[in-house]
Design a protein around this nucleic acid. Structure first.
Lengths: 182, 182, 182, 182
DNA sequence: TATGAATGAGTTTTCATTCAT
DNA sequence: AATGAATGAAAACTCATTCAT
């Protein structure tokens, strides 16, 4: 029930944005009465927060796992493994990822998947810097650029109904580590 | 008067988001009565649209100029010049740029500065591909990544009250063309 | 509840006209909150339309019945029966009849009781023409005049709190069929 | 100037009703600024009232004249002359007559042409009664019916862009005095 | 006198939240 | 727990009226 409600909310937010998902519509789509929403969530904000936290609870472990996935490998291979894992995780939650990226700057969605992605990438880049693979003075920039590039790529692919596969992941990693020159 | 209203709207949207700027507050901050807003804009949507179009009218020529800024130069220098120009333009409109990037996916803000940036970068990357500097098979990815990285960097700097200067621009270009390796 | 709201609207419109019945007053008189109105009607226009349609649904069958009331009788007797029935029906809905006649030409009230009356009278007059009782070349005029005269008489009686009884009906029919000469 | 404003108001009211004629539109159509309206009329109500009074000032004398038009003639001829005169007067002010009849029951238009018509007809009918032509017990009814029938006929003809000529007038008089029988 | 931008009270409309069943 | 009608505060919108120029 709770998750049926959250899925209904997710659908509507994905389609119409955060302010295009009134409780009446969420309830209708979830097949329950409005009043029922209040048996599961204190208020609208809490419902939205719960949606983001539910997905976060699923995605954060996978992001964490993605960091450790390539442990022992050379840095490039490790980053490649990381991005492949991230893409796989996002692929499994396309609708929410769209929502998470699009509403990233909204008051109601602080500290959610977008932030988790950022901090995970930070962590990974620091490893590269410590290993001397990534130029120290470029590491902050790399982290920011990688996060931005990844989100842009993901959103693009989701919006055009294209897959997020390993080739896509490898391409992004090559670009960021070796540049775009021919 | 019209622009005082739009600036008030910009301030409020920058502070509280698109749905955190009721007409009563906009009017108050602009120092006019609510009714006055309707002397200048058909309705709330039109006011918001006008804000984005006003800034767009200022920024688009600068983005276009940024593309031609480095004409004749080698591609890397040209991209460098482009990003420096873009940063200079964004620096002059920090508040709006924050708003434009944060609300990029909102129903009320289609075809605005964020799109102009994307298409401008597209154009530039195509030149690099034609010149053989950018690997053809990487050009789409480069355009997406560059747009995403640039927006992420800009937003980060604006949010932390840091400048968007030439050094920042050069760093981003190096990263994208040559990669992050030490 | 729905009909309490419509009755409140009817009262206010009868007293102050269509534009003298704001939703706040309708709600107050109906003993509900303003928001409640929107649980029953899409918007103000829909509420007004519903009022006219509700009464129409009641009155139209009675007008139809009035046409058949005198079937088999000689034409004059038939018309007499018709007008008596109409008066009885109107008598039972004085307040609405007042509203319906007074707002007959308003944008929000097309195709309502006033039109039904007109078309019903048309039908009846055609019967009289076919039977040769009414001069063919006078039938259109008779229909128009009868409708106008009937509405004027009804409105007059309602406004002066006078009854609409059989004598009144018979008087009108005599006048229209035989003229006013002594 | 004043009459240009009143004509603009008349046009708009004829087209959209009393509540479909905001001052801004009236001013625009009259080719003046809103503020100017207040140099000629105390407020909106006064403007509307002035429109009705201006026309009334023109029409009332013609209605009065219509009563005396047939003095000396036999009653039927006199009524015929009266209705012909009325039709001629109304024909010359079709737009206003439409407005006057349609808004007859509005708060802002008491004691105007519609009432003048009624009282004029009353007067005429009384003459017929005194002369013994109209049955005394039918005179009130005749007056009401004649007024209603006349207004209905006029409105019908104006709405369908048909003329109000002498034949039309004669037809109405015959109907009311002699009835519709073949 | 003419102008038309500015005003703000009045009205409509939305929607999260409550609560009796 | 589930329901959904009722609520009313907040927001959008309209328009007669004012007033500085």
């Amino acid at each position: 029930m709770k998750s049926a409600i959250l899925e209904a909310a997710e659908d509507l937010i994905a389609a119409n944005g955060l302010s295009g998902a009134p409780l009446a519509q969420i309830a209708k789509r979830a097949g329950v009465a409005v009043g029922t929403l209040y048996n599961y969530f204190a208020d609208r904000d809490a419902l939205i927060a719960a949606l983001f936290e539910m997905r976060r609870a699923t995605l954060r472990p996978r992001l964490r796992a993605a960091v450790t996935a390539g442990e022992g490998l050379a840095f490039e291979a490790r980053v490649r493994a990381f991005v492949r894992e991230v893409f796989a995780a996002f692929e499994a939650h396309r609708k929410f990822i769209k929502v998470a990226i699009e509403t990233e700057h909204h008051r109601l969605t602080p500290g959610t998947t977008a932030k988790d992605l950022m901090s995970t990438i930070d962590e990974l880049v620091k490893i590269g810097a410590k290993e001397g693979i990534v130029a120290a003075e470029r590491s902050e920039l790399l982290a920011i650029a990688m996060t931005g590039a990844l989100k842009a790529l993901v959103l693009r692919r989701i919006s055009s109904n294209a897959k997020l596969d390993d080739a896509e992941a490898d391409g992004l990693v090559s670009l960021l580590l070796d540049g775009a020159r021919a």
